[in-house]
Simulated assay, not measured.
Amino acid sequence: MKDNKSEKPIIYDRAVLVSQDEIAKRRHANAITAGSFSVGNFSVNPDTQHIFEDFVEGRIATIEEVYELLHAHYTELVLKDN
């Protein structure tokens, strides 16, 4: 599957690592956050959106892994630009 705004394919073959209760909590928190961003008219980076979606849907277990993936993504961009 490919996101219409991102150049990278979205891969959904990761296992769900958290409970359905935790996923429900993450979906609720994500909905509130997304609403806040839309009110502020912030745009979402389509190249990193899949990381947040994987966290919300339980395919990433911890926020620390989200930080690591985002750090790797943005470090790669900085290194590529230099």
Score class of each variant (00 low, 15 high):
Y67H: 08
G58I: 03
V78K: 14
E76P: 00
R59S: 06
L70Y: 02
H71P: 04
N4S: 05
Y67M: 03
V39F: 03
N41H: 06
P9W: 14
K2S: 11
T33W: 13
S6H: 03
R27I: 12
I10W: 01
I32M: 15
D81C: 05
A29L: 13
R59G: 06
V78I: 14
H73A: 10
E76K: 06
H71S: 09
L17F: 04
Q49N: 08
F37V: 04
A61T: 07
I60T: 00
T75M: 09
D81Q: 15
V44H: 01
D3G: 07
V44L: 00
E22W: 08
Q49M: 12
D3N: 12
S43L: 14
H28Y: 09
L77Q: 10
N4Q: 07
Q20F: 07
H50L: 05
L77I: 09
G40N: 07
N41V: 03
N4W: 08
R26S: 10
F55R: 10
D54L: 02
I32T: 11
I63M: 12
L17Y: 06
H28C: 08
I60P: 01
L70A: 04
Y74V: 02
K80V: 05
A29R: 12
F37A: 12
G58A: 03
E65W: 00
Q49S: 09
K8T: 07
E65Q: 07
R14Q: 04
I10G: 02
K25R: 08
S6T: 04
H71R: 12
I51T: 00
D47W: 03
A34T: 15
H73M: 03
N4Y: 09
N82Y: 13
D47L: 01
E65K: 15
A72Q: 15
V78A: 09
V66L: 08
A31I: 15
V66H: 05
G58W: 05
G40F: 04
F52D: 01
I11C: 05
E7K: 13
P46S: 10
K8N: 07
A61S: 12
L79S: 13
T62L: 04
T62D: 03
K5V: 00
I60R: 01
H50P: 02
A34D: 11
V56Y: 03
T48H: 01
T33S: 13
S38E: 14
S19V: 14
I63D: 10
E7S: 09
S38V: 11
F55Q: 05
F42Q: 11
